[in-house]
Design a protein around this nucleic acid. Sequence first.
RNA 1: GGGCUCAUGGUAUAGCUUGGAUAGCAUAGGGGCUUCCGGAGCCCUAGACCCGGGUUCGAAUCCCGGUGAGCUCACCA
Length: 571
Amino acid sequence: MKIHNQFKDEVTTAVRGALREMDAPDIAFVTEVPDNADLAVPCFTMSKELKMPPKNIAEKIAENIKPTGLITAVSAMNGYLNFTIDQKILITDTLNDIIESGDGYGSLPYNGKKINLEHTSTNPTGPIHVGRARNPVIGDTLARCLVRCGYEVTTEYYVNDVGKQVVILTWGVNNLPKESVVEEERDKTDHKLVAYYRLANKMMEEDPVVQEQISEMLRKFEAGDQNVISHVRETAEEMLEGLKETLEQINVTLDRYTWESDFIADGTARKVVEELKKSEYAGQTEDGSWYLDLKDFGIQGKNTKFTFTRADGTTLYTTRDLAYHLNKFKRCDIAIDVLGEDQKLGSKQLCSALEILGCDKKPEPMFYSFVALPEGKMSTRRGVVVYLDDLIDEAVDRAYEEIRKRRSDIPEDKMKDIARSVGIGAVRYNIIRVHPDKQFVFKWDEALNFDGNSGPYLQYVHARACSMLKKAGEYKHDTDASKLTDELEINLVKALSKFENITRLAGEEKRIHMLPAYGHEVSVAFNQFYANVPVLSAGDSRDARLTLVECTRTVLKNILTCLGMESPEEM
RNA sequence: GGGCUCAUGGUAUAGCUUGGAUAGCAUAGGGGCUUCCGGAGCCCUAGACCCGGGUUCGAAUCCCGGUGAGCUCACCA
């Protein structure tokens, strides 16, 4: 990557020099990376000032530039200046860099900044369903990218163990006999408990006595009844164990779990209320509830009020979330929240309230749209869901079938391991490859896509490379560019050289969907090389080509790791 | 009703922030490739920027207005 920056510098300097010759030293221009050159400068913007057609400008500048350093050729075409990089230096440099850096290739140096990345944080009222499954996958992938960008990252799950939903669940668990709920097949706490949640909801709607019991429980909870609070906490903890198991299945583990009820217990939510009341934006309704009027903070709509206490003075979710964020900022430089699109307004209100509280930091939200079923929105309460656990199982099963179709030489347990890697890889890849803003409808065939632009395609290339290296046995690293002259080899090296830039885009700019696209680009380049260039029987070029294969393997493994996918050596 | 987001071949998706040279990729369709390192592969072919204005030498990209979809506007979490 360094070489690309250097190349860009040299091109900029050369163009600037040529323009000086043309008596236009201050004219502005940009560089871009096109398909048909290594770097290009469009000359259209200079047209007015130089009073010349872009085509002539490009030709004139090209005449004034002599290839030096990394620039081996300049040409003018259709009003563009096209520059060609010294391929020999690019090849040798890139391959040496990959060999030296290994796992660290494509990473940026440690920058000492602490990032707290909150993701998943689903309500502990039922198993994770695919409607929300983007959250852990996006969060975990972004965390991995940020680590590679040099940050110190802590991932965190905010557990909502306060409020009506968890109270309903707890009432169900404490009052409903085991025989009365419809048993879920799966032996996991989240699947077992959700049955109580559903029945409790149904009974609450139909039976006023139940409704009163739940209301009573909620009142006790609000009043600080330790017995009720700890029951709820225990239930939430039990549910969370099931959620953690699911997350582990898709290679997601979080560093820290923070409980919402802690901000009531330690009094910080109360403190936030007291601070907000002092604000000039604060007001109180006739009933006694407190709010902030955020109309001066760009909040639109028929109601610009942001309520932060109930009439009885108790705190709301949003108040506790404020306390939580203040707490977070004590522990990090940058806070990132991965949130569903339904949180957009809430997140904006949170930021405004933080500003009012005099907090100079704001969380950076990253939103994703929900995944719906063809028949509509998913709902845990109504039982209209596809669970993430079921998606994982189905993916692993399909991967197993594929492996069994083509391999008879692998022992059963190893086949199972590979199937797991491939199935989960397919699921994660298919979630990350689309832009988070894009809403999508869940379809089994698309979620389980195994060929073309898919996770297994990348893993397949990795496995192919591994297989070759294994067959090759001993060889010496050879980065002599004169032995790698095939167009397909050069194309592959160029793809490998872009990794650092992609890491930066994926992390710093949170464009994590660049990662699968890049992995696919590298894989295509490798498959084309593989299909047309012999390696093991290559004579003089054998070592150099094996080195290229090894470097591709290294880069692919790094991409896969960044995507939270395994890199099986065979499949 | 207000706000935010999305709209690209049959299907799915990239490019939009920072406007530029033939709009990329995948899948389904049609045709081809296995003497040789793994055919979950490779090659060829056909097919798309929601509609209408505007800005510009130049618009998928920026602006305005439509249309359609999602989310949102709680003393819920």
